[in-house]
Each structure stands twice: as C-alpha cells, then as structure tokens.
Design a protein around this nucleic acid. Structure first.
Lengths: 141, 141
DNA sequence: TGAAATAGTGGGTCGAGACCTATTATTGGG
DNA sequence: CCCAATAATAGGTCTCGACCCACTATTTCA
C-alpha cells in the first residue's frame, strides 16, 4: 500500500520530472544555505565561463527576464561575488564581472553539486552515469 | 553569444533539473488545457492502478498533504472523474473511486504524455529511450 | 535635432506547491 | 462510557518562479 502508480512510472516524462525535481530540490537546499538560488549559480557560471556580460546579454543567454537579472545581480554584488560597472562605450549598459570571491564561491557550489550528484546517482556505476549524462545532453540539444 | 555555461552543462544534477523542468513544463501545459494539474493525474493513476482509496491512503501513497487531497478530489469530482462515498465500515473515511469517465480521461492524458515524450526524446533512438527509462527508474529506487 | 529604440531599474501581479492549524465527525481503547 | 486518536475538511500562510509595466538615462537614426 505504498508503491507509486505503474501508469506513471511507465512514463519517461514522469520519471524525468520526478528525478529532475529531486535533483533540483537538493541543489536548491544547498544554495539556500548561502542565501542563493538557482539563477545566482547560473549567472556566476555564465560570467566565469564566458567573461563579463552586459545584463541584457546575461538575460538572453540564460533565458531569464531582464528585470530579474537586476535582482539576481543585486544579490550577487551584495556579498561581493560580482562587480557592476557602467560601460564607458555605451553608458546605458552595465557590465557584470565575476570577482575572485565569486569564483571561489562558484567552485564551492560546483563541488557541492557534484556531491549531491554522487548521492543521487548512487545506484548507478561510473559507466552508467556517463551514459545518463550523455543521453541528457543530447535531449537538451 | 548564446550557449549555456559549460560549468553547468557538465553537471548531471543540472541536466536532470533542466530536462525534468522541460518534461514537467510540457505535461503541465497539456493538463492545464483540461483545467487539471499534476496531482490530478497522479490521483487518477493511483485510483486506476490500485483501486479505490480512502483519502488518507492516497495522501500516504503519493506523498501529498491530506488537506490537499481534499482539494484535488473536489476538482476531480466536479467533472465526474471520481466518485466519493462515505465508507460504511468506518464512517470517518471517504472512499474515492475512479469513474468510467475518469478512466477515459486518464487514458487520454497518458496518450498525450507519450506524445510529449516522443517530442522531447526525439534525439534518441528506441534503444536509447529504453536505456534512459531504465537508468531513471533505478535512480528513483 | 527630435523621435524611436535600447538598457537598466523598481515595482508590482499571479499561480503553483508545500505546509500548517482549527474544527467536526467518528471510532476504538482503557 | 469517556477520552484519545483518527479522517476529512475549510481556511489560511509562505515562497518561488515567471512575467509584466512604467519610468529614466542614453544612444541611434532619419
């Protein structure tokens, strides 16, 4: 009297939704310990991987509303994870840059994400984890 | 200037979260067309797979708050997808039963979920879809 | 040079999900 | 037989993500 309905478990859509929720849930919990949310990590990653962005470009890259970028950057610059500077070439633009402190934070968060991954994927061996990673990558195109 | 950060794409946690969100998003959109949400489908599936439940048992099986079960059943009985009847053996209990109409609705929803699945998993061949399904099933334990 | 477009910002809304509490009816145990 | 536990219910809170509009500063272009 405690199993989930097979009708649902037979749907890959449902399994994806459920495992995705588990993955996100755990990640969100760790981020919350630092007062951050998903978008904060995504923004830090984008700045680390691709260098400084105008806020508009962050918005386009991550698919986040421009007005929400403002708020995320507000919260990332408070603890000194990013710097914001008006672009001299186009004074409408504000360029966001990750700081050394922000880099360190991102590294820490990434390590924790890998720890979560190890818990979540515990039932799978290394080859299977690679397989899963591969399949998911191809789905996202 | 439009790629996602490799730091994130390298995390299976992130890929799971992202594909899960995509899967759930599409499913939710179809359900919304019928004025339903995820829990409605889950409840219909549980009633179809395991037969009539006391509300408390539905709550335990699906991991949903008892007071939310009430609301979901309210919304499922309005269009006649489930019947509610006071249990004569224990008049505190209310037994929820899926109707023929509810069965039909569930079948329809399941078919649509499979259609969504086909779109989402388009980049994978049949063997790979099975593989994915298998891996996800094992993660959920 | 004046009008339209663009970038950022502040201030909201809205729905969903998870959760929580009080109340009523009913049952079962001491 | 009475009290504690249980089931359902109504009502509410809180947070989050996604979205949207108005406003200002600045740039571009006709």
């Amino acid at each position: 009297m405690e199993a989930l309905p097979p009708s649902l478990l037979g749907l890959t859509t449902y399994l994806l939704s459920k495992t995705g929720k588990a993955a996100r849930g755990r990640l969100v919990a760790r981020l919350a310990a630092d007062g951050l949310r998903m978008w904060h990590m995504a923004v830090l990653a984008a700045l680390a991987d691709f260098g400084p962005h105008a806020q508009r470009d962050l918005s386009a890259r991550l698919g986040i509303d421009p007005s929400d970028v403002v708020k995320v950057l507000d919260e990332l610059s408070a603890p000194g994870f990013v710097d914001r500077a008006r672009d001299p070439a186009d004074r409408r633009r504000v360029t966001a840059t990750i700081t050394a402190r922000g880099q360190r934070e991102l590294t820490r968060l990434t390590q924790e994400a890998r720890a979560i991954q190890d818990e979540l994927l515990a039932p799978l061996d290394a080859a299977e984890r690679d397989q899963l990673h591969n399949l998911l990558t191809r789905i996202l195109v």
